[in-house]
Design a protein around this nucleic acid. Structure first.
Lengths: 334, 334
DNA sequence: CACCACTGCTGAATCGAATCAGCCGCATCA
DNA sequence: TGATGCGGCTGATTCGATTCAGCAGTGGTG
């Protein structure tokens, strides 16, 4: 208790409080007294009671993070790691809640967090998409993570999917690939990653004077990627380079190509999005444009706790992690 | 504020408090008054201030979860989902912290949680193993998740790796496989999963009058699984059935078998541990003994909040998820 | 009629910090 | 010499709940 420290140092609790909160100078405390109090605090292992402090200050040094299901997700959960570490650096802790997409549970979680007077809430979604801001979030300082509300001017943190698309295209172009197909179509209407990546891919190709040769539509899963690619190949489909909408699709594509006797990268160059661990497990290692999940989570928290931040969408660049799935330029057709 | 509710209902804050805390009967409050107060609370949308409550009661309806890196982990992060949902069911919230294996950061996180008066702490590790209980955990109600301290009688929740080993063996035995090799050796001395699975496998085989034919040693990764299996095959290694220590090893094994022209399950039956999403992505789908991560997380929280729980290790069964990687019995050699 | 038990409720203290307003003593200045 | 200012500190209040101890009023009892 603060009172114990004060007693041990022979001062009032008021003085001890000022000193331990770094307001000694402002309060004209004698350096000698300052030191005496700090020494007492250290000796007694003083740790302020956060509940008491929060009751007065209305601040808890705790932030909330609510998501549909980023914890259970394969590797989007690194957003949690990033958020947790960034929070720690700014002397905060994270209370998390996962709604599983249940709107009632979500509201409940948000309310529980408000009751606990969290200093802010990060509202995250597993897949990048547009959302309708939950009412329970109104009036609370918050940052949207991996999602945005087009109707509101909320602070929002997203991966730069369009830039990622350009990078993917540029990676193939640099290898001398001139005929590029995309595998994977956006599965859900509100998801933003697909359209943005597509736009980036087209733009990247256009810069090289190329056009997208075609699209193999499928959901973003291994099985769908495999099935769609198999059908496409069976129908005579061929391409020098494939851009897969994520690593799982790419895995399905690998399987389909292998069954058709086509080799990566000799016959087909493959680039993908995600940069997940899976990319590193494939043979050859998949070149993939990485979703910077850890950084996204960290940035969301930093913006949340930065009182100078006044909203708007901020994107984090997506960088390609090179594997061996894209032929090197000199392997190209002469 | 409680005072507002009390005023609106024309009673004292004391009375309102008793009623809203369900102690009306005990305090002999008139049913009519009870109703009036509840109505007022509902009308005003009363939400108690948790900090104020915690200051008095020393309870926060919040638990801590500290881990080395379960959030960033591929699918161990479902422990978080399980913990979060179980906590919610028991009217608690979870504050999480990830130390990344840094002992100083871990201590800091544990102390921050104590300062916040959490009602208990779940201490989790990414991989099942024995640990030395952190000092900062002493004196705090806690449950170890996916780890245990052999020197202490702490409450601990673990997957039943030995049972899982038996199940893996039984799965192959049931398919008529009689020559079984294991791929993957325990990478680290303190990890418990490996030895326990091995013991289970041997026991399961013994029940069928069989012995383990051999072990292909390697770290638990795709690349190591591939490399070791490739070397083994090149050296003339053959087996009817392989038990892989996890799904990543199995993926490497698949790759090695494919390159050697061996087919799963026609030439080799494969069983694995983890039951991760990866198992479902492989072709054929990998039969894998599932690590019940969600249930482990939930159980840890339930035990933490169950004041009748007095410690000891509790294991959760591992169930096999059947894919197509084990030949069916009638395919067996006549 | 005094005493008691019981019903139904409330006043005041408490949890541990933060913080406003102000006090005391000494030096300075007119 | 008295007013003023400043350095250095503290008393008392506050945050919003929980909870102990106890107080009116009523009806029953001997």
């Amino acid at each position: 208790m603060l009172a114990d420290v004060a007693a041990a140092a022979g001062v009032s609790a008021t003085t001890a409080s000022y000193i331990l909160n770094g307001r000694a100078a402002q309060m004209r405390i004698a350096p000698e007294t300052d030191e005496r109090v700090r020494a007492a605090a250290a000796r007694l292992g003083y740790r302020p009671n956060r509940s008491a402090r929060s009751l007065r200050t209305r601040r808890t040094a705790t932030i909330g993070l609510v998501s549909d299901q980023i914890a259970g997700e394969q590797y989007g959960s690194s957003m949690l790691t990033g958020a947790s570490l960034a929070a720690r650096e700014l002397d905060h802790l994270v209370v998390m809640g996962e709604s599983g997409g249940d709107a009632d549970l979500e509201r409940l979680l948000l309310e529980e967090m408000r009751e606990r007077d969290v200093d802010g809430i990060v509202y995250a979604t597993r897949t990048a998409r547009t959302i309708h801001l939950p009412d329970a979030l109104r009036g609370v300082r918050s940052v949207l993570l991996n999602c945005e509300d087009p109707d509101e001017r909320y602070a929002s943190v997203l991966p730069d999917d369009e830039g990622g698309g350009r990078t993917a295209a540029a990676t193939l172009v640099a290898a001398g690939v001139s005929e590029v197909w995309v595998v994977g179509e956006d599965p859900t209407p509100e998801a933003t990653a697909g359209p943005r990546r597509m736009a980036g891919i087209r733009a990247g190709l256009a810069e090289a004077g190329l056009e997208l040769a075609g699209v193999v539509a499928c959901d973003w899963s291994v099985t769908e990627g495999f099935a769609a690619t198999t059908r496409w190949l069976a129908g005579g489909g061929r391409a020098e380079g494939l851009v897969c909408m994520n690593d799982r699709v790419a895995m399905g594509v690998y399987q389909a190509l292998a069954e058709a006797g086509l080799r990566v990268p000799d016959d087909v160059s493959v680039v993908s999005f995600d940069g997940s661990a899976l990319a590193g497990w494939l043979r050859p290692v998949l070149s993939s444009v990485e979703l910077p999940f850890t950084e996204l989570g960290a940035l969301a928290v930093r913006r949340l706790l930065d009182s100078d931040d006044h909203g708007g969408t901020e994107t984090v660049p997506m960088v390609v992690r090179h594997g061996g799935s894209v032929r090197t330029a000199r392997d190209g057709p002469a």
